[in-house]
Design a protein around this nucleic acid. Structure first.
Lengths: 200, 200, 200, 200
DNA sequence: GATGAATGAGCTTTCATTCAT
DNA sequence: AATGAATGAAAGCTCATTCAT
């Protein structure tokens, strides 16, 4: 069982990293947000980078777990793909900070960014798995599976973020109203492009 | 006519910002890369942020101009949309650095990020214009135009970046071989999801 | 109880600020003089300006306290005024650095200079209080109290500084011999100009 | 005859140095104020310090000349001393910037400050000359002439500056109303303390 | 386990000065 | 004589990290 303080620090770190990005995040602020002394963070984590990597892995893992739970309820690849798109949007709306970090910290040559991409790759493989199963059952027809997975990931991520940042601070509650629209749009795009036979 | 040194600094800055992101980029490094003294940068730009904003605006403008030139050669929205996807991929492969900054620095609450999103919005509006024209001619059928534009932008951006970063340093030349594949995949996704009638 | 390091920094800062003035004083030098790292200063003080303001307030407060203690021993305004002049000279000779900063940093439109003048004003009010009490008892006759207070302050300050700077480095010990002369001169000036009846 | 541009630069420099003090004054600003290129200043002056020293000498010289002209109209040391006090106040009110620089830049160990003190010393010697002549004629009785000169200089300087800075920006016109009061106060102080016989 | 005072390398920015034109 | 683009030394300040308690 993880130490109690570690959880407190994780929660604080998520918030601060999401608000500010890796570079602008201050260990001081994380400590203050967590209500612990700065030294305590260093007792539990080797470095800022270490904390960040742990955090990102956990974040993406949650995204993966959430997606897997959504998928599990369906058998056909078609339904699973739709469930995946829906879970992606819902998770991002609920965890906007992660979405932002996903795009802003995923690309780069730094070691932490490489590690981060590895973790994201797990999620992409989940998408690819469904696509491949759909191809086997004959429901889907996808020529370049990895490219399709990347494309869906990018499309879904940018659509949600663009919506989040286009709403003013005061209108942020309207994001919930926009969710069905985003899900519909993305499902349409995804299904159209992979369905063997024409999609509605 | 812009001063010669300004161009040298711009070229150096785009390289360094792309390598490291805004925060990790060092003015020292930009100066060294440009072969000028650090003070020279500050003689021409008010601040690091000023340099970055100028750079990004110019970068996105080039993307917009490149896309517009590609589109101009065609009349039908269908051909224009395919041309746009192609130009997007080609531009990103040629300007991988800008592509990375486009995703990593576009989202956030900083003023420079807001300015940056405004500029990207110009590009999104270009996509939307084609989509709307296609809807008018009856070639396209798009329910939520802004969402579709964001989705295509996100899909195309992530596909190229994912490919760029999945190739090791030594295999970077292979990127050119991957270009047709990426274009084909993205065109397929885009056309399928907007075509009024089934797209083969 | 104030932290030990704060005192060390204060002592070093007063020396460096006095040697060089606010602008020419270097935080590096203060740190070196104090035997602490530069960061330590910024751990305890918000900025160079913050350090300076704290220092000046404390310095002038010491001058005020010293004057008040000197005055307390006497009842008659006449004796108090003489005590004040004497204490002023003694304090300045002992704290030449503060004296210099008092004149060189008090005037200007910067916020820190305004704050500084406010503090000096406390000292001037002390002088004015004695002058007014003397007027009540009939011992003094002063037409413009604030002008008189400023004049005595300026006279005493410049006399000591002029003497300090007219002595070469090597003759600085002679300052002690000059003290009685300065006190006598200033007391003469002050008493003559405020005494109701002729002062010998 | 001095080069035309030198005068333009001098006028600009006076303004900028007075507004900001030596350290905070920027050569850029002086150039802009003078309407010349920065290089032009360096064509006529060796350095910022060189410009400042030249300026200060000229400023103090003007003060000296103004005092001498005021004195010349009278024969008796008594009248001359009163004229000197009056001219000092009038000059300071008219040239507040010089007054400020006089106090803020006169003390210190820098070479320019030493040179500056030398120049001020000329003014002090002028005061001393009158005091000594008064002693010879029997009108005055001054025990320590240099101390008295310093005291009068300090008193007059601080009185005017304190008044200038105590008035808010908007009330600066009231300074003219305060002039007679300052002159009266200072003349009273000076005359009382040097007159052989009681001064009313 | 936990703390927070202390550190110092490293950052952006400033600005007096130079020099080719 | 005059210019102003270019310079680079130095400054104030930040903040991840350490370590004695």
């Amino acid at each position: 069982m993880r130490h109690e303080k570690v959880d407190v620090i994780f929660q604080a770190a998520i918030k601060v990293f999401a608000d500010s990005g890796f570079d602008q995040a201050r260990m001081d602020e994380i400590a203050k947000e967590a209500g612990v002394a700065k030294g305590t963070i260093y007792y539990h984590f080797k470095s800022k980078e270490d904390l960040f990597v742990g955090l990102m892995n956990e974040g993406v893992q949650k995204l993966i777990d959430f997606a897997k739970r959504s998928i599990k309820r369906y058998d056909s690849p078609t339904e699973q793909m739709q469930a995946l798109v829906k879970s992606h949007v819902l998770f991002y709306v609920e965890n906007g900070m992660l979405a932002k970090l996903l795009l802003s910290e995923a690309f780069g040559t730094k070691s932490r960014q490489h590690q981060f991409r590895m973790k994201i790759h797990e999620y992409l493989r989940l998408i690819e798995t469904i696509l491949r199963r759909g191809a086997e059952t004959g429901e889907f027809k996808v020529k370049h599976v990895p490219e399709a997975a990347s494309a869906f990931f990018g499309a879904a991520s940018v659509v949600v973020l663009q919506k989040l940042y286009s709403l003013e601070e005061s209108e942020l509650r309207q994001i919930d109203e926009a969710v069905p629209q985003m899900i519909e749009s993305l499902q349409h795009i995804v299904m159209c492009s992979i369905k063997n036979s024409p999609y509605l």
